[in-house]
Amino acid sequence: MNTNRLSKKIETILNHQVTKEAEAAQIYLSYGCWADSEGYGGIANYLFRHSQEERDHMMKVMQYIMERGGTAKIDAVKAPPANPKNLQDCFEKTFKHEVDNTNAIYEIVNLAHEEKDWATYNFAQWFVKEQIEEEKLVLELLDKLKIAGGPKASDESLLNLDTQLGKEPDSVSLAREANTENPE
């Protein structure tokens, strides 16, 4: 008896998202290593925390696939892009990556709607909300950097930004802890 409640297309697109989340984790990890090598320990810590969040997102998608009777597949991930030139470049590339991930989530939502797979449609709504938060977070980083002077920020301003980000609490909620009563 076939117990898979996911269509082939839905299972494929969800497995593609597993890979995208793994790649996102690698990008944040790579940029964190770059930031640390540039002396930005606080920013590195911030990026490392977000790498873990992306891994949690990957696990959330994998768990959903398996709960619906599908088969989660682990594919190879692309190497992270080249190191950023500076913090402005780092945050801009991070924002571009988050927008790309948002668009991938929208593809899942659209396909689930098209197929009337309301379970997957509902599941994907958590990610829609999460991506709003992710994009906002990176936009706030870009705003802070702009106030500090952008690409021409003084060393003192960059030290202040680095210190501020390093002191932020680990407020990133874990995806695996989200449920209908506490979706965050």
Rank of each mutant, 00 (worst) to 15 (best):
G70K: 06
C90I: 05
K144I: 01
N179F: 08
T163H: 11
R49K: 15
A35V: 08
Q63A: 15
A79Q: 13
L145S: 05
S157D: 09
Y121D: 09
N83Y: 13
K167P: 00
K20E: 14
D100F: 13
Q164P: 00
V77C: 15
S154D: 05
L141P: 00
I13M: 11
T3R: 07
F123E: 04
L141I: 02
D75A: 15
T3N: 13
L165A: 09
K20M: 13
N103S: 09
L139I: 09
G32V: 03
D155H: 13
V61T: 10
M59V: 10
E135V: 11
S171P: 00
E184T: 11
L161F: 14
T19N: 14
F48K: 12
S157V: 09
L47T: 10
T120R: 06
A104E: 07
V99F: 00
E135I: 04
C33D: 10
E133T: 08
M62W: 06
L139D: 09
M1T: 13
N103P: 03
E114W: 09
V18Q: 04
V77H: 04
M58W: 04
T94E: 04
A153E: 06
E156Y: 10
P80K: 03
K73D: 08
T71P: 00
Q63E: 15
A25S: 15
L14S: 12
E168Q: 11
T120H: 07
I43F: 09
N86M: 02
E54Q: 12
T120P: 01
G70F: 08
G70S: 09
E115R: 05
N182T: 09
A175W: 11
A112S: 11
K152I: 12
A119M: 09
I132M: 08
L87Q: 03
S30W: 04
Q164Y: 13
A175R: 01
